[in-house]
Design a protein around this nucleic acid. Structure first.
Length: 902
RNA sequence: GCGAGAGUGGCGGAACGGCAGACGCGCUGGAUUUAGGAUCCAGUCCCGAAAGGGGUGGGGGUUCGAAUCCCCCCUCUCGCACCA
């Protein structure tokens, strides 16, 4: 006989309904219930918010999805359900909750997918949206207000995306400049950053190059300071705020001017650099320009010209990723030119190296190898002088030497092996160890007499910090810095900046890492940038009344080798008349970045039915800023930064009166499967549809929220979902097969149970700790079932508590039990703090902090009663014996600790 | 390298500085059942027959008392990454 597997996959075959018996009608049949309530909610417009009439508006936003062909991902469901629970909770608190949903359907994902399946986004996107909405989103039990949905590819929407572009253009916040794009020489196409990961083309694997193109930018940097400052007061997840702060990357320093030794006739006479360490100016022994720096070509000497040219060409061909990622070894070449160090008149060489980025600061640096690890590495590689100008604390020197972080190769090369050996010997001798040290037990060494540091290590460092393996980059005391010697870093910075200012050689400056937002995309599937280029009038925005500039249907939308958007191939699109002079003109053919579509969608939701304005002023005042935004931490910087920028810009333009779009933002966690990230290649992708069909949306929702703390994510496990299903079935049986009493609950233990659980669930749901809220609901059900008397009042409260998680079953049972109206509209149960506490408390009794016994006393027992009772416990008394008690601590309602005298 | 977060039973995970392991999965035993992948009851951190002892990645510290706070180290996850 063949052995049958003990268990089969829970998802295989098998209808969830059991063969018909007399009981069937009363079984928990999720399919019937969920279909019924979906229908009722839709018919009665239960979740269509009266936007104009709402008394207590609450805007509950979640990040709208990109409607992929694969369908809704379980990660989306996790995100939406968590947000919906918050929305349902707020509704039960009496708010008019607006919970809209939409589709972020433009962009490279849709376009690429269409290319791979040889279809067209114009065909694919609508059917994907249809599938998302009708087959998936409508089944997860969320309170979506479908009367206000948004589809970014709809001309009624992107008309306003273009309109916003025009407003920004008029406000001087949109401009054009040359910027590099990722270019695949083999596919002859522009690539997005994610398509060029690792510096290789995603499709053909060839090395991605950087190509310069004239592109559109938004001036996000104009708001760098405000974007940073507001983080201090907005109520957002801390991790998100930290990520934004780092992304903005404010750093204070000074701009310093270095004059060229041999200025080329008529050309600029100096180089400006940004440094956060003006106090290290005396240690600047060379300078570096980024390969793209315009002065490179001008200043390099004829001798070096070819070398420099070759180097720059090579650097240009490396994608930024390769340049940064794989360049473990630094590269660079000498230009032949020199500059003058303004503080000491020294002539220092100017190099070109790709470790300096054109996009930050001025694209040029002064190199202080002794106190910057990158310069240090570069100087060692190319044998440039390293001069100490900051004296590290002796502890640092000690640490370096003790750990053996010294550079023997460097010492040898510079004929300083003797010095190094001397250092080691004296260090060893100081600790009573003979020379020829191997640092086997470094921390045991050197702790006694430290005079060797004063006598040997410090002079050695002062003379040549290159002997050490690392640069000292922290603050310290100035050395080798002329009149500034002895100053601490902070005061030195202040003084030297003032001095530079006086000499007209520099001033204090703030720099940001944040860059302007490049919104040009040389692709097809996006809203055309509403600009016309006219030979006479130059750049002219399309007049607002002519918007939208419709995206033309182009059968073959695949990028060609031109590097231009496919729109450039459509003559009837490109050729137009200038809105100003009516002469012939050409349209801009780039489309805008997908992130612009999603940067303002929440403005549109309340006004989605308005054809005349992007967003109605009164509705916007009433509903925005968004009360709660829940979404993925992966959007911590880009999406959330862009929406903040845009909101600030719209405020300054005068269209709104607030500058932060989201009062509260919470990032949810990531959901993994069996401990690993879900991916198609691993074959561990969870398809939500199957689970919803088999277990029901209620079970699926509740399970997703139960598998871990919402803000941390969790591990999805097939085997665990059954626990939730059993819980809901138990709830069903209890609610349908119990004789309930109609009178009010009266006995204290039951009241205590109910009130304590209401308290717990309320607190947890409020703070998004859904997993423990569910656990508390389970405890409540367990507790109710164990009672002798069963009250309708109690089960109804449980239904209210569970409703945000499992709305279908809660509505059904509420109705069955004769509840008034909808369970979700019943006011959230209040709890009584006094009733939530037990009438008796069980205290742990410790002796010297060790648990010995337990003691049950009345909740209001006084200290002496408790301590006498505790001491009287046999196990405790035995330990006390005749000895004296030093201290007796009562920490109610948990512990009594009896501390004995020693 | 930098930043953020996390290391707790066989597993997912609970624990205002106060009884470690709530809740659930799994497992063990029992009841019921034609059947069980249903339901109900009991049990389930480790060592020990018990009394008792040990236990929250490792090592120190603060405290009457530490999974929780502080310092050092290790590991994992996620971001960022030559930003001068």
């Amino acid at each position: 006989m063949t052995e049958l597997p003990r268990k089969t996959n829970l998802l295989q075959g098998q209808e969830s309904r059991l063969p018909g018996t007399a009981m069937t009608t009363d079984k928990y049949d999720h399919q019937v219930i969920e279909a019924k309530w979906s229908r009722l909610w839709e018919q009665n417009k239960t979740y269509a918010t009266d936007l104009a009439g709402a008394k207590r508006p609450y805007y509950n936003l979640m990040m709208f999805p990109y409607p992929s062909a694969e369908g809704l991902h379980v990660g989306n469901v996790f995100a939406f359900v968590g947000s919906d629970i918050h929305g349902r909770f707020m509704r039960a608190q009496g708010y008019d909750v607006f919970e809209p949903m939409g589709f972020d359907a433009f962009g490279i994902h849709s376009e690429n997918y269409a290319i791979t399946v040889r279809s067209h986004p114009v065909k694919l996107v609508p059917s994907n949206i249809e599938n998302f909405r009708e087959n998936q989103l409508k089944r997860i039990g969320a309170m979506f207000d479908w009367s206000h949905q948004v589809d970014t590819t709809n001309p009624d929407y992107y008309r306003w995306t273009q309109w916003i572009f025009v407003q920004l253009y008029k406000a001087g916040l949109a401009y054009q400049k040359d910027a590099p794009v990722n270019w695949c020489p083999s596919c002859k196409t522009v690539l997005s950053n994610e398509q060029a990961e690792g510096g290789l083309c995603e499709r053909c694997g060839s090395m991605v190059e950087q190509r310069k193109m004239h592109q559109w930018f938004f001036r996000t940097t104009a708001y760098a300071q405000k974007l940073l400052e507001n983080l201090d007061w907005i109520d957002w997840s801390n991790a998100t705020k930290t990520a934004q702060r780092r992304w903005i990357g404010r750093s204070e320093g000074a701009e310093v001017e270095f004059k060229l030794v041999n200025p080329v006739g008529g050309e600029p006479q100096s180089l400006r650099v940004f440094t956060t360490r003006p106090d290290t100016l005396f240690g600047a022994t060379y300078m570096v320009l980024a390969p793209e720096h315009p002065l490179v070509e001008i200043i390099c000497t004829d001798e070096q010209r070819q070398t420099v040219k070759d180097y720059c060409r090579e650097a240009a061909q490396k994608a930024e990723l390769i340049r940064t990622d794989l360049a473990k070894e630094k590269t660079g070449v000498f230009t032949g030119a020199y500059a003058v160090n303004p503080v000491n008149g020294e002539q220092i060489p100017i190099w070109v190296a790709d470790y300096v980025l054109i996009s930050y600061g001025s694209g040029a640096i002064m190199a202080v190898p002794a106190h910057d690890s990158r310069d240090f590495e570069f100087a060692k590689q190319f044998d440039l002088p390293i001069r100490a100008v900051v004296m590290p604390p002796t502890a640092w020197l000690h640490e370096q030497i003790v750990r053996g972080l010294l550079d023997e190769d460097y010492a040898k090369k510079h004929g300083q092996s003797d010095l190094l050996e001397n250092l080691l010997r004296s260090a060893g001798l100081a600790a009573g160890i003979v020379a020829g040290i191997t640092f086997q037990n470094p921390h045991a060494v050197l702790d006694g007499d430290a005079s060797w540091i004063q006598q040997v290590a410090i002079p050695l460092y002062k003379n040549d910090p290159g002997l050490f393996a690392d640069a000292y980059t922290e603050d310290g005391t100035a050395i080798n810095s002329g009149e500034f010697d002895g100053q601490e870093t902070a005061e030195f910075k202040k003084n030297i900046t003032a001095w530079l200012n006086g000499q007209n050689l520099g001033q204090a400056t703030v720099n940001y890492r944040l860059r302007d937002w490049c919104i040009s995309r040389q692709r097809y599937w996006g809203p055309p940038i509403p600009i016309v280029h006219c030979d006479n009038c130059g750049v002219v925005p399309v007049p607002e009344e002519e918007l939208p500039v419709l995206l033309p249907f182009i059968e073959d939308f695949v990028p060609d080798g031109s590097g231009k958007s496919p729109l450039a191939r459509d003559e009837t699109f490109v050729n137009t008349t200038c809105p100003k002079c009516k002469g012939p003109a050409k349209r801009e053919t780039d489309v805008n970045d997908n992130f612009l579509d999603s940067a303002w969608y929440f403005f549109r939701y309340p006004s989605s039915d308005r054809a005349d304005v992007p967003f109605d002023a009164a509705l916007t005042r009433k509903w925005l800023p968004v009360d709660m935004y829940i979404g993925g931490q992966e959007h911590a910087v880009l999406h959330l930064m862009y929406t903040r920028f845009l909101t600030m810009a719209l405020k300054d333009i005068g269209l709104i009166d607030f500058e932060e779009p989201f009062k509260c933002f919470r990032a949810h966690g990531l959901i993994v499967k069996d401990g690993a990230k879900m991916s198609k290649s691993k074959g561990n992708v969870v398809n939500p549809d199957e689970y919803i069909k088999r277990y029901g949306a209620d079970t699926f929702r509740t399970y997703l929220m139960f598998l871990g703390p919402y803000q941390e994510g969790g591990d999805f496990r097939d085997t665990d979902i059954i626990g939730i299903r059993r819980f809901l079935e138990r709830l069903w049986r209890y609610a349908t097969q119990t004789q309930f009493l109609d009178e009010e609950m009266a006995d204290r233990p039951l009241l205590q149970l109910v009130h304590s659980k209401v308290k717990k669930v309320t607190k947890d749901v409020k703070s998004l700790r859904y997993n423990t809220a569910i656990a508390a609901s389970m405890e409540l059900l367990n507790g109710l079932q164990a009672q002798k008397k069963h009250y309708c009042q109690a089960i109804k409260i449980l239904l209210q508590l569970i409703c945000p998680f499992a709305p279908f079953i809660a509505h059904q049972l509420w109705e069955r039990l004769g509840g008034k109206g909808l369970v979700n509209d019943a006011p959230w149960p209040e709890f009584d703090e006094n009733l939530s506490r037990a009438s008796q408390m069980e205290l742990a009794v410790q002796v010297n902090g060790k648990l010995i016994d337990r003691l049950t006393v009345e909740a209001d027992a006084d200290d002496s009663t408790i301590s006498e009772a505790a001491k009287a416990l046999p196990k405790v008394a035995q330990r006390i014996g005749g000895k004296q008690i030093a201290k007796l601590i009562i920490a109610r309602p948990r512990v009594v600790n009896i501390v004995m005298k020693k």
